[in-house]
Simulated scan of single mutants.
Amino acid sequence: MEGTILKRIIYLLPILGVLCFTGLIIYGYSKGIFHSVHSLQAFIDQFGEYAIVIFIILQILQVIVPILPGGISTVVGMLMFGSLHGLFYSYIGLIIGEMIVYWLARYYGKSFVRLILSKKRYLKFEQMVDRPKNGIKKLMIVTLLIPFAPDDLVCLVAGLTELPFKEYMKILLIFKFWSVATYGYVLLFLFNRFLIS
């Protein structure tokens, strides 16, 4: 019973995340926060160094339970802290999150995976688990190289395969930055083009 309630909460979090994000955008426009990148950064500066810590923690949680659609949180960080700093903070948070996901999957197994994935995504997950070690390494590299590919799902799969943590981290550290930077800059361009005047 408790597992079912928790699962429903986890499924509702992305919807709530999108609603909150939409609400923040509307609020930001009404208060003039989103009128320019400078006004957004001036608003964030009020929170001092805590803003960076909070953002990194949110990125860590974003990997475990996706609250916003992929890439949106990264572009928010790039707007808040500047494109390079925001990208770096996002990368740190996402790497830590992927490390946690690997160990949660390894320790709790498929019961953890069933808790956080929908039935449709779980079926994709099951198909990936049976791959040999070299197969999962190649799949990780490919999904990290292709922007907007389901790399978080593949990292979850890696925790249940024979892929050693050291090899997992090597692939993640090398290729994750490319993935984060690519979709971050694409979404930042679209955000600047259509939302910020």
Rank of each mutant, 00 (worst) to 15 (best):
Y91T: 09
Y91W: 14
Y91E: 01
I92A: 01
I92L: 12
G93P: 02
G93F: 00
L94N: 08
L94K: 03
I95H: 00
I95Q: 02
I96A: 11
I96F: 09
G97T: 02
G97F: 03
G97I: 06
M99F: 13
I100R: 04
I100W: 02
V101S: 09
V101I: 14
Y102S: 03
W103F: 15
W103A: 03
W103P: 01
L104Q: 03
L104I: 12
Y107L: 13
Y107C: 02
Y107F: 13
Y108C: 09
Y108Q: 10
Y108H: 10
G109T: 10
G109H: 08
K110W: 02
S111N: 13
F112W: 13
V113W: 05
S118M: 05
S118N: 10
K119G: 03
K119D: 15
R121G: 01
Y122G: 07
K124Q: 14
K124W: 07
E126M: 10
Q127F: 04
Q127M: 11
Q127W: 02
Q127I: 06
M128T: 04
M128R: 08
V129I: 15
V129F: 02
V129D: 01
D130R: 08
R131S: 12
R131G: 08
K133M: 14
K133W: 01
N134Y: 04
G135C: 04
I136D: 09
K137F: 06
L139E: 14
L139W: 05
L139G: 01
M140D: 09
M140V: 05
I141L: 10
V142P: 01
V142H: 00
T143Q: 03
T143V: 06
L144A: 06
L145C: 11
I146R: 01
P147T: 01
P147I: 04
A149F: 14
P150T: 05
P150K: 06
D151N: 11
D152K: 03
D152R: 02
L153Y: 08
L153N: 13
V154M: 03
V157S: 09
V157R: 12
A158H: 08
G159E: 12
L160N: 12
L160Q: 15
L160W: 04
L160D: 05
T161H: 11
E162Y: 07
E162T: 14
L163T: 14
L163A: 13
L163V: 15
F165Q: 10
F165H: 11
F165C: 11
K166I: 15
E167C: 06
Y168E: 11
M169P: 04
M169C: 15
M169Y: 06
K170D: 08
K170E: 12
I171C: 10
I171L: 09
I171S: 12
L173P: 05
L173S: 12
L173M: 14
I174C: 04
F175V: 10
F175P: 08
F175D: 11
K176F: 09
F177Q: 04
W178D: 05
V180C: 07
T182Q: 04
T182N: 05
Y183F: 12
G184H: 07
Y185A: 02
V186I: 15
V186D: 01
L187T: 02
L188T: 06
F189M: 07
F189S: 05
F189I: 05
L190H: 01
L190Q: 01
L190T: 04
F191R: 00
F191W: 10
N192A: 02
N192P: 00
F194Y: 15
F194C: 01
F194D: 00
L195T: 00
L195M: 07
L195N: 00
